Amino acid sequence: MQFIDLATQKDRIRGAVMARLESIVDRVQFIMGPEVAELESKLAAYAGTKHCLSCSSGTDALLIALMAKGIGPGDAVLTTPFTFVATAEVVSLTGATPVFVDIEPESFNIDPSLLEKGVEEARRKGLEPKALIPVDLFGLPADYRRLEPEARRLGLWILEDACQGFGGSQDGRMAGAFGQVGATSFFPAKPLGCWGDGGAIFTDDDELAELMVSVRVHGGGADKYSNVRIGVNGRLDSMQAAVLLEKLEIFPEELEMRDRVAAAYSSRLEGRVRVPSVPEGSRSAWAQYSVLARDGKDREQLMGALQKEGIPSVIYYKIPLHLQEAYAGLGYRTGDFPVTEDMASRVFSLPMHPYLKEEEIERVASVILA
């Protein structure tokens, strides 16, 4: 059984993708070809934003936004410790300091009620709190109903990390469209992934979009040899854009298929493990289907039983960021973020993709329920 089945999807779109790739090869226009502009236009329309800038990865999407906003030494950026390291890594790369805020146990996402505590911590450390990076973890948008007004009250601008959330929504707004700027990833395992690395940035802010265009390609000005600021080499290549254009065509259908898989899992597993919940008015993109065991020992037993039956499972995330060696210098200790630490000790993810068969879901469930 595959944890994520990219082969079935590849077979479905192979002909259309190969036709696009052959066209690119024939034109010999591998970087920033017309496929890139077409993709950006379609992604902006999908997300409901004025601008979309494609880029080389989800990490660069986050980094470009922070650089364009001038985040740097002495600044604090609030974010969650329960996420992939890239979310905090980009803050560190700018010279700013990540300040962690604990999560809600129901959603795995950052707790809006604790933002003020994070701002106070930043100021105690002599930092200026500037921004907030909520993460749409496992595909579920963070609670922007509460985050946006609270961030405004505290003087923070929001960079939405939708690297797992693209395709999700809340109250009719699509992931990527929250805050001042949103970022997503097209890593192959994402709900919408390419055949390599890729990402995108979304905003309605004209000035910010112009700045990010410059940062994306070496801080360019009037032409490629006029450099008006420090930037990165963050372009998306034409071939990845071609793949994404074909995947975007089937993306709405695949999201419905993911919904069905998640519902089938939940109906079978509820009561044995804590299954994920989706608040009313929200939709998850189901980047992962993550459950909670009773405790660490129970998780070990369940994952071991699955492994014996040839069923893969993965822990996202075993070590929270505040306890990672890379962030030892921030001075956090075990016990600082109790909800995060509890979730990290019990969480594990089951196979999730649009093409998971009913009999495969039943097989997974039978092992867990045994």
Rank of each mutant, 00 (worst) to 15 (best):
L6N: 13
Q9M: 11
K10N: 13
I13F: 00
L21K: 12
V25G: 02
V28S: 14
Q29M: 08
Q29R: 13
I31P: 02
P34C: 05
P34A: 06
E38I: 01
E40G: 07
K42I: 00
L43R: 00
A44G: 01
Y46Q: 05
L53K: 01
S57H: 03
M67G: 03
K69D: 10
I71C: 11
V77K: 12
T80H: 07
F82L: 15
V85Y: 04
V90P: 09
V90M: 05
T94H: 08
T97M: 06
V99Y: 06
F100V: 01
I103M: 10
E104Q: 15
E106G: 09
F108M: 12
I110R: 05
D111S: 15
S113P: 06
L114D: 08
L114M: 12
G118K: 04
E121F: 07
R124F: 08
G126M: 05
E128C: 13
A131C: 09
L132W: 11
I133F: 02
P134Y: 06
P134S: 10
V135R: 04
R145W: 09
R146K: 15
L147K: 06
P149K: 08
A151G: 10
A151F: 03
R153N: 13
L159A: 11
E160M: 04
A162W: 06
C163W: 00
Q164L: 08
G168F: 05
Q170K: 14
Q170V: 13
R173V: 06
A177I: 02
G179F: 03
G182C: 09
P188M: 06
K190G: 01
C194A: 14
C194F: 00
D197W: 14
L211K: 14
V215I: 14
R216A: 08
G220Q: 14
G220K: 12
A222G: 05
N233D: 15
Q240T: 08
L244A: 03
L255G: 07
L255N: 05
L255H: 07
E256M: 12
L269F: 03
L269E: 12
V275M: 05
V275H: 07
P276S: 02
G281T: 05
W286G: 13
A287R: 05
Q288T: 14
Y289H: 10
G304I: 01
P312E: 04
L323G: 13
L323I: 10
L323H: 11
R333A: 14
T340H: 02
S349A: 10
L350N: 07
P351G: 02
L356T: 13
L356V: 15
E359Q: 13
E360I: 00
E362L: 04
R363W: 03
